[in-house]
Design a protein around this nucleic acid. Structure first.
Lengths: 164, 164
DNA sequence: GTTTTTGCAAATGATTTGCATGGAT
DNA sequence: ATCCATGCAAATCATTTGCAAAAAC
C-alpha cells in the first residue's frame, strides 16, 4: 500500500480524523479527499477513485470508512431513494438542500434561498425531537431536459411523468 | 380468492382505480384500504394485512400493486433511507412533511407550520425543473425519548448521537 | 377474447457481517 | 504491545424480473 501517510496533500484531514477520535489511515485520508473533490459520489465511485490512488482498497473498506466518517460527522450521507446507492458529501453547515434528477439520478446542491427554511434548525416540539432536516427537490436536471429554445413553462405538465 | 369485488367497503376506490386507468382487482382495493388505514406502512406489513383479508397475496403482487398505485398517483412512496424499506401513504395534496425517528424508524406527519415552506410548489429554475419536494425531519420520536419530567431543553446535545 | 394481473422462483444490487491479518497508536 | 482498521467471503434484505396461469375488461 502506497504510503500517503507522510505526504497527504490535505494535512487538514489528518487533524480532522484525530480530532474525531479516529485513527489516521490511508483509505480514510484518500476517501476524505475524494468526497471533497467529487460532490455526491456513490460508494462505488469513491472506491474506484481510492483504488487509483492506493492500488488496493476493498469495497468493504470503503463502506467501513464511509460509515466511520459519517458517524464522526466529517461527511454526510445522502439518501435519495430506498433502492439507489447512497451518496456522500463533505459535511458543511450552510443551509443547502438537494436537487435530485429522476431521469439520471444526479444530485446538485441548492442554496436555500426560496424563503426562510424551517428546515435546518433543530427544535423540540415537546413530543418529537428534531435534530436534522433533509430537503430533497425532485425533478429533471438541465442535462436531462429536452432542449428549450425560448419561452419556458413554469409548471411541469402532468404528462411529463416517466421513470428512470 | 375471496370475492371482495362485489362488497368492497370503500366503493370510492373502485372509481379511483378506474379513473386512473387501472383494472379493479381485489389486491388493489385491499391495498388502498390498508394504506389508508395504517399510515406509513411498509410493503411487508401491507402484504400481511392483505393476506388476512384475501388469504393469498404474494409479496411480488403487493410490490406490483404498490408500484402501480404509486405511478397512478393514488398513493405516495416515502423513502426515508437508502437501506430501509419504503413506506406508503395515501397521496394527499396538503402541505405536510415527515418526522423520521432514528431509533425506531417510525414516521409521523407534520403539517408544515414552521414558516412558509419553499417546499411543495413546483418551479422552474430555468436550469433544474423541480416537480416535487420531500422534507424529512430526523430525530427522536416521543416513544423513543427518555421520559421527561419537567423542563425541556430545546436543542439536543451533540452527545445525543447514537445509531439504530 | 384480449390484455392486464397475479403468483412463483430466481436474480439483483447495495450494504453489512464475521473472522483473521496487518497497521496505527 | 494493544487495539482498531482492513480484506476476504459469505450473508442480508428490500425490491425487481421472467414466465405461465388466472382474472378483468
Amino acid at each position: 500500500m502506497v504510503d500517503l501517510l507522510q505526504t497527504a496533500p490535505e494535512p487538514d484531514y489528518r487533524r480532522q480524523l484525530r480530532d474525531a477520535g479516529l485513527r489516521v489511515t490511508a483509505p480514510r485520508l484518500v476517501t476524505l479527499e475524494i468526497v471533497a473533490e467529487r460532490q455526491h459520489a456513490e460508494a462505488d465511485e469513491i472506491n474506484a477513485a481510492a483504488r487509483e490512488r492506493l492500488g488496493d482498497v476493498s469495497m468493504q473498506t470503503t463502506y467501513g470508512v464511509l460509515h466511520a466518517l459519517t458517524e464522526a460527522g466529517l461527511i454526510r450521507r445522502l439518501d435519495t431513494s430506498s433502492r439507489e446507492a447512497a451518496r456522500y458529501e463533505i459535511h458543511r453547515h450552510d443551509n443547502h438542500h438537494h436537487l435530485v434528477c429522476r431521469i439520471c439520478g444526479s444530485v446538485e446542491d441548492v442554496p436555500c434561498t426560496r424563503g426562510e427554511a424551517p428546515c435546518l434548525e433543530p427544535f423540540d416540539s415537546g413530543d418529537f425531537l428534531v435534530e436534522t432536516a433533509d430537503v430533497l427537490f425532485r425533478g429533471v436536471c438541465a442535462a436531462c431536459r429536452p432542449p428549450q429554445s425560448t419561452s419556458v413553462p413554469v409548471v411541469p405538465s402532468k404528462e411529463e411523468e416517466e421513470e428512470r
